[in-house]
Design a protein around this nucleic acid. Structure first.
Length: 481
RNA sequence: GGCCCCGUCGCCAAGUGGUAAGGCAGAGGUCUGCAACACCUUUAUCAGCAGUUCGAAUCUGCUCGGGGCCUCCA
């Protein structure tokens, strides 16, 4: 079974065959750096993070480019509001972005170019398009003539006539056709600008991605990704620019992730229903956020809510509890002399799921099966003496960790993770760790005196406050209800 | 108005022609002084209607409901 990916261009799943066998070039539209990232950005970046990881896991030598758009109207406006320079604003939010991605446990792309580092390439594309008659300079601006590109709207599958009727020309724009879009904008007073054959100016939106992708991946490459909302106009315009300039096919597979919704509605700034990554991480562990996002298929919409995050946390906790139990169960038992096929079987299912357009939800379901399997083995009587079973648990344990890392999961020490999440949850309750431990001591005392009714009282009291006591051979511990 | 997506167990969520994965929550059981964890058992015919087919959650049509893009947006 080989990798199949859903291509927005064809609207179907296609067998994945890179341009150069064994190698993949992937470009993902990053952020415009003028504000903090929200959970929608988190989803897009996590989705392509695991696509990157899985391509590498599958043996592809992958070059992953994710840009920063650091020159743009929104940046200029925001910088003016704050009375700082665009560069300082961009710098501030590039740093914030990097911190957020690091916190979410993303691995770094191969290249993270900035639009302002590619001004010359942007100018070159403009010139090439003008030379070919596909773009025109007009009053210091440069516009793309969409009617010169017959494939325009092939990605978003829209109808030009109807688009035109709804298109508007902003005041000051000098377009021949309302659907034309700016490749280069003449600088206004106080805006960042660069010298060009058309006077001082700055790039339009879209063109920077054409410049950075061709510079780092070539005129044609394998995968181009981003959120669904980028299909039109951003990606459509990129195609027009890049194919118009190079005369070659731009991208082989277009991949778009679904939205994050809040109460079934798209999250957006205008609705005011967005959550920043930073705020979410105050209440939930980063891995919980990742687990939540990967528990649905990347193209489906997901509903962000406290309830859903909590469920994700419960699910992840199951993994960590199993990992903790298996770590303890196989501790000190090295080579058993027995072989096991359990890991191999699990990996096969995992690959099958991931090969089917990165079906992380199914892949995780298989890992859950692995967990149950492992727990069942450990619960066997005289487990440690049955070396064939020990071998299977060792195999499953290692495989779950290895496959989990392809999803960026289970990277923490189980006990540490469980404690961390527990203490984070405790903050919401009306009791402290010290109080719990004091009560545990009292209960221990009572039980030592065979005063079970007092012991049960304490259990019930703590349960009322959201704390469950666990009696084990090593003593009594607690967890959140 | 144009284009597009979705509606699967209480909740989350896979499954795109061959007879419904998984998780959370619930019930019963084993274990436990009592519990918890873990394990075992158990819970759906897929919004509705009409078709195509030997066979459909999966294809077609219609209806109802929800959402997205068409202006900046992951």
């Amino acid at each position: 079974m080989s990798l199949r990916v859903y291509n927005t261009m064809s609207g179907k799943k296609e067998e994945f065959k890179p341009l150069v066998p064994g190698k993949v070039g992937m470009y993902v539209c990053g952020v415009t750096v003028y504000d903090y990232c929200h959970i929608g950005h988190a989803r897009a970046n996590i989705v392509f993070d695991i696509i990157f990881r899985y391509l590498q896991f599958s043996g592809y030598e992958t070059t992953y480019v994710r840009n920063y758009t650091d020159v743009d109207d929104k940046i200029i406006n925001r910088a003016n509001e704050r009375k700082i320079s665009s560069q300082d604003l961009a710098e501030e939010f590039i740093q914030a972005f990097d911190e957020d991605m690091e916190a979410l446990g993303l691995i770094k792309p191969t290249h993270q170019p900035r639009a302002t580092e590619y001004i010359q390439q942007i100018i070159d594309i403009n010139q090439k398009l003008i030379d070919k008659g596909m773009a025109y300079a007009s009053g210091g601006d440069v516009y793309y003539s969409v009617d010169k590109f017959s494939d325009y709207l092939k990605l978003s599958k829209r109808n030009m006539d109807e688009m035109v009727s709804g298109a508007r020309v902003a005041p000051g724009e000098q377009k021949h056709n309302p659907m034309d879009f700016a490749l280069w904008k003449a600088a206004k007073e106080g805006e960042p600008s660069w010298e060009s054959p058309w006077g001082a100016g700055r790039p339009g939106w879209h063109i920077e991605c054409s410049a950075m992708s061709s510079s780092l991946l070539g005129d044609s490459f394998d995968i181009h990704g981003g959120g669904r909302d980028l299909i039109f106009p951003h990606h459509e315009n990129e195609i027009a620019q890049s194919e118009g300039a190079s005369g070659k096919p731009f991208v082989k597979y277009w991949m778009h992730n679904g939205f994050v919704n809040v109460d079934k509605e798209k999250m957006s700034k205008s609705l005011g229903n967005f959550f920043t990554i930073r705020d979410i991480l105050k209440n939930y562990d980063a891995e919980v956020v990742r687990f939540f996002i990967l528990s649905a298929h990347y193209r489906s919409p997901i509903d962000f809510s406290d309830h859903n995050l909590s469920e994700a946390q419960s699910g992840l906790r199951r993994f960590y509890e199993a990992l903790e139990a298996s770590t303890n169960a196989i501790e000190g038992l090295d080579s058993t002399g027995h072989s096991s096929q359990e890991g191999e079987k699990l990996e096969e299912k995992f690959r099958e799921a991931m090969d089917d357009d990165f079906n992380t939800a199914l892949a995780i379901a298989h890992l859950f099966d692995g967990v149950r399997n492992m727990n069942r083995l450990i619960a066997t009587k005289k487990f440690k003496k049955k070396l064939d079973l020990v071998a299977q648990v060792q195999d499953l344990h290692a495989t779950i960790l290895r496959l989990g890392s392809v999803l960026g999961l289970y990277r923490s020490q189980p006990t540490e993770w469980l404690d961390k999440v527990k203490l984070k949850g405790l903050k919401k309750l009306d009791i402290t760790q010290e109080e719990i431990e004091a009560l545990i001591d009292q209960r221990l005392q009572a039980r030592a005196e065979k005063n079970f009714s007092r012991g049960d009282e304490i259990r019930v009291e703590l349960e009322g406050k959201g704390i469950l006591l666990l009696d084990t051979r090593e003593g009594t511990t607690w967890r959140l209800k």
